[in-house]
Design a protein around this nucleic acid. Structure first.
Lengths: 141, 141
DNA sequence: GTTACGAATGATAATCGTTCTCATTTGCAT
DNA sequence: ATGCAAATGAGAACGATTATCATTCGTAAC
């Protein structure tokens, strides 16, 4: 339970809402949570937190490098714990489940292409939207 | 000027707003336009069109396959003429200019990765956000 | 332990992009 | 020309997110 250190090193006071949000991400089944998800789950746990605070905390955590933010189709942003490893996402169109993957070949090709066009990559996002090919979608919720 | 045919074959009446929007995309310097962009430019031309209509028309054109929609960081969606060729995008962080590219190796790797995970790709988006490496950004506006 | 002060919170209003509603207008087949 | 469904425009409504601001909390100094 070294959460307070995480917060401290990020220059953030160790407050109740912040600890609860961090805890949620570290113990939740679903790695990818939207602000609304976090808000609802905290209310369910009995935590009396405001939606505005959730948004603020998520943004602070993202800037502190604790979380990473992604924007998939469908309006709302989702956050996930930053494990330090870059990866891309494949989204199941049936159930919305998000799977992660990393492909070195794709990464290096991107660098090559960008360099060839005279750009230095600062960030990138690759989102694949797909149907599960198994008989019954194993991600159905 | 075969726009009416485009519309007709899409089952859309050939109305003034629709023709103006199509015309804008075919003659605009910037390939990627948001709804707001289209709206403003039409007003500048003296066309008295409503924002709601612009949104409706853009959506219809997308469904008809005339336009393609993209969602970059920063909230708003942009549309571009559908030339039938898939391509990805690199966005200049300095000026917001969008450059297009296509890399066969990346495409095939994506298919492989998705297949390996048990998915059939329906759609995907690869957005690279980068700094221009030339002394002065040639895209500065 | 109190105290004090700035940072953090929560309720709510505001904003932004987008969609919906509905009365009016338009395209087009007759 | 005429009629009617389709399309339009103004503005309301919407969902996600951000800003405002009075109140509460964390913590460092006493």
């Amino acid at each position: 339970m070294d959460q307070p250190e995480h917060l401290k090193s990020a220059g953030l006071k160790s407050t109740l809402p912040r600890l609860k949000v961090l805890d949620l991400f570290e113990n939740s089944k679903e790695r990818h949570l939207s602000a609304e998800d976090v808000y609802r789950q905290l209310l369910n746990i009995g935590e009396d937190v405001g939606l505005a605070t959730v948004y603020r905390v998520l943004t602070q955590f993202e800037q502190a490098g604790l979380l990473v933010k992604h924007h998939f189709e469908g309006g709302k942003s989702v956050f996930e714990l930053n494990k330090g490893d870059h990866h891309d996402h494949i989204v199941c169109l049936q159930c919305g489940h998000v799977e992660e993957f990393y492909d070195a070949a794709i990464e290096t090709r991107q660098e090559k292409v960008a360099a060839g066009l005279g750009f230095a990559i600062r960030d990138h996002s690759l989102h694949i939207y797909a149907d599960c090919t198994k008989k019954k979608c194993p991600h159905k919720r």
